[in-house]
Design a protein around this nucleic acid. Structure first.
Lengths: 350, 350
DNA sequence: TTTGCCTGAGATAACGTTTTCTCGGATCGC
DNA sequence: GCGATCCGAGAAAACGTTATCTCAGGCAAA
């Protein structure tokens, strides 16, 4: 409690009549310590209100208990939920989250990754903003610490954790088919993002018996409601045979749903993706991504890579530190869940 | 480039043939250094790819260039935008953001604040989750570092930066009155949050000539679309004289707007608050908060308080460190902006 | 009893910076 | 030309921990 400065281990040691390393040993539970001393130390620490200095600890032990999370754009309503999932899972493990927004710009992304490295984060979770040009900065970082891609993906050289888009679209199609749909079309965002591209491909290719012979048209448009409205109106006019619109995200689906309702085409089923509150608000069937599971797996991959505890099936170890993070190039997919609402259950518009 | 370890100042010093402190002086531009040496140092640093270790720097100088931001719930669509604004403004100044989500729980909030303190953040921005019970943890933190409340407020003992709810509601009412409204009602979220409470009070009390004699009814309901729908339906049924619904946030407004449209009451104007993409998506007139300005001001207050550069008008300085952050208990309001859309322009529903 | 080992605690070093101290040499004034 | 002053660079200390080394004492085995 001295004057203005904080209580340090030295103060605790003095108060307990032991040496500084002993205080450290007691508080970290590392070695065996005389119960008598241990009690004295704990009591003193408690009484003085000692709280360890995380910075000093990080410097000495070179473990900062800090993760960096780089996301393309937090204004995109999908990412706040991802951030939340990661943040909660991390904090539960005594880690803390250093958040960086890449502003959808590869240059900014590169910069923030470098900055996070300087701050000695223990690992990096990145949702790369560009399918191709984000790779180099991530690989550079991976030379020093574990780096895991989450949701979006820019390189197969690094582990990735994401949702099973293919399976999700499959589930959506089966859900629609069960509701009587036979001629669905797809509207997705511009495919500079990997998950969006996968959804589009899945829609076009995933096998569904009942849809044999239907050519499955696909369209893309910017992720804003106005663009979705315009495109949907055009589709309704030119392709009156279409009986469902599978959308690549909730924003587009919202616009599509609105136009369908207004046009009196309540027979057209509409589905979204991401299960944002837009879906809940507008009675839109959507796909929920397993965010907690994504966070869980991504973090586990990082911690595993850092601990070097992995099964050494990798053979050659000549590459040294580069191999450390690259060792496990796991690509993990987690299953999504279709949340059915009024937009796909015949006419029952909320 | 040695082996696995990172390049340190010592390496640079050795390569440049100078001492370590000289490298520090050159790279921080502090003291005057022989241009010749300076050039050698820079060249060496560049060649070796030296990047300073932020942890060591923080330990020695006790400035971590890190801000903590504590928000009640990042799933609430207002906060991601606040986070973004803060993050961008900070990163522009060479700071980095340690993000913590309090999960709408005072106990969690207390815990994360303590954790951020341990990590030597330079300052703390908090949007307290409880109007009353959040205060103590914040005040405790304020004994060590600058703490500023942002958006929500829990105590007058600490500075606060937020939107001018009063003025915003005034603007909304004038906008409505100009559109012919004379009998508006208010629907807000449950008033455990300070800004929501202020909006409700402002609606009830702000002077608007054209509304003299109207009793301005107010209602509250949980912030979800279903509850808003139900309440709105009830209001339409019991108070058919009402000609506008001023809502405390976009979620409630969305539900209200939907019910009004469905009931054929396109004569009822509806306004939201927060200018989330829900507003844009549904053609809802809403109120945009000046997030960048909030972030800017909050950060400036923190940096100012830390630098002790304030005008010493405070008189007594006996209280010491407590005074350091409490010194400026500024309460700053920033003006909002009404974004007019179809929901308030007669019948022109998008 | 003596030797060797093991346990547990203090002393010391280390992490990579920045800050403070010290000191040689150049500058300036007289 | 000489002493006081200042400037700039290196040496050393410091920040608060954890890791390593050292050593005294206890205990078991010979």
């Amino acid at each position: 409690m001295r004057d203005g400065t904080r209580v340090t281990m030295r103060d605790v040691a003095a108060a307990a009549g032991v040496s500084v390393p002993t205080v450290s040993r007691v508080l970290n539970g590392a070695a065996t310590v005389d119960p008598e001393l241990s009690a004295r130390v704990r009591k003193a620490a408690d009484r003085l209100g000692y709280r360890p200095n995380a910075i000093a600890r990080a410097l000495r032990s070179s473990v900062s208990h800090t993760f960096g999370l780089v996301i393309p754009d937090i204004a995109n309503p999908f990412f706040p939920r991802l951030v939340k999932a990661v943040e909660q899972r991390l904090r539960g493990s005594g880690y803390v989250l250093l958040l960086a927004d890449a502003q959808n710009d590869v240059a900014v992304e590169r910069e923030v990754i470098a900055d996070l490295l300087q701050r000695s984060v223990d690992a990096l979770l990145v949702s790369p903003c560009d399918r191709e040009r984000s790779a180099s900065a991530m690989l550079a970082a991976a030379a020093e610490i574990p780096v895991v891609q989450i949701d979006r993906r820019a390189t197969a050289e690094l582990p990735w954790v994401g949702a099973d888009q293919w399976g999700a679209i499959h589930d959506v199609l089966r859900h629609l088919v069960a509701a009587g749909v036979r001629r669905p079309a797809f509207i997705g965002p511009l495919t500079t993002e990997s998950p969006a591209l996968e959804r589009l491909r899945a829609f076009a290719e995933v096998p569904v018996g009942e849809l044999e012979g239907w050519d499955r048209p696909t369209f893309t448009c910017p992720s804003d409601v106005a663009a979705a409205r315009a495109l949907t109106a055009e589709i309704l006019a030119t392709r009156p045979d279409i009986d469902a619109l599978v959308c690549g995200n909730d924003v587009i689906a919202f616009g599509a749903l609105e136009i369908c309702r207004r046009a009196g085409r309540s027979d057209i089923a509409v589905t979204g993706f991401d299960e944002t509150f837009l879906a809940e608000a507008s009675g839109l069937t959507s796909v929920e991504q397993p965010l907690s599971a994504l966070a869980e797996t991504a973090i586990r991959l990082c911690l595993g890579a850092g601990g070097e505890a992995g099964d050494g099936a990798g053979g050659a170890e000549g590459e040294g530190r580069r191999e450390r993070a690259g060792q496990a190039r796991e690509q993990v997919r987690h299953a999504c869940r279709v949340v059915a609402r009024g937009s796909t259950t015949s006419g029952a518009t909320v």
